[in-house]
Design a protein around this nucleic acid. Structure first.
Lengths: 149, 149
DNA sequence: ATGATTAGTAACTTTCGAAGTTGCGTGAGA
DNA sequence: TCTCACGCAACTTCGAAAGTTACTAATCAT
């Protein structure tokens, strides 16, 4: 499976938005994500509809956070981008009447559902403020190294 | 992401194999999985190389279990099919030098790794015998209904 | 032997969703 | 009114699993 970058990318730009004074344009975000502004707007649309960011058009426009980083969790972002599938593993329904298949699928479904639930609970406990805090630790560490040299 | 049926399908055919006397051909498995014998052989190849099944060619040939269902766990099967990615979520590496990206990715990676570890540990605790047991419960339940009627 | 059967495998096509791209419309400020 | 920036539809590209075709290599029945 090829994978889905959207959650990772949205978290990235949201933390960047908090580091800046004014609004951030899709063009700037596209550079951060090494992609195209349309891709950014498409994915950000969900965050806008969920009220985590606001967009303004025209001169001086762009995107702003509508809530503090401490008020947004990874779970919020995951939901805002429409809860894409978490797992690559898919449960086959090749022979729906087969009781063996049903038994196998029940077991897999039970484990995957439990794993999903645990993971999303953790996502709900992690705010973007925590990510920003980690970023600042990394930043201080790297500027210390730079100052020494 | 489109998903990956291989684990689910392999579990399905392995439990079927234990329900039968002689070997099972790829053609028969393909019918169980509603697919093509080549797809079956391709995926079963990993199980053969890992020693969970044996294949014989020619008349009366086909596939046999090389170990009891109680000796094979979901984790064994997952490993035998080459440990495909568990998650659809991918961690973006769009701007490798960016400390914000690094902080986001570290958090995601940590959660996904923990979730993977927990899930695989559970897989290691579930034998195919347990799946077969559940199948038999379902079978008895359905034949009881059939007898009543 | 020889013919039928079944696995092994390479090479190619199909499928499906995320990502990327193009083009045009809309609103807002200089 | 010109430019900037988002909104959005429609199309193309990309990647991996699944599916298909075609052939080879064993093995057994006759």
């Amino acid at each position: 499976m090829k994978g889905d970058n959207r959650l990772s990318r949205m978290l990235h730009v949201l933390v960047h938005m908090a580091q800046r004074e004014g609004p951030v344009t899709s063009e700037e975000m596209a550079q951060m994500l090494n992609t195209n502004p349309v891709v950014v707007r498409r994915t950000m649309a969900g965050l806008r509809e969920s009220g985590f960011v606001q967009a303004e058009r025209g001169h001086g426009g762009g995107w702003r956070l509508a809530r503090g980083l401490g008020d947004i969790t990874l779970l919020d972002v995951y939901r805002a981008i429409d809860e894409p599938p978490l797992f690559s593993l898919r449960i086959a329904e090749d022979t729906p009447g087969c009781l063996v298949e049903q038994a196998v699928n029940a077991a897999l479904d039970s484990e995957l559902s439990a794993a999903r639930e645990r993971l999303l609970r953790r996502f709900g406990e992690i705010t973007l403020a925590a990510l920003a805090g980690d970023f600042e630790r990394r930043w201080r560490a790297s500027s210390k190294r730079a100052t020494k040299a």
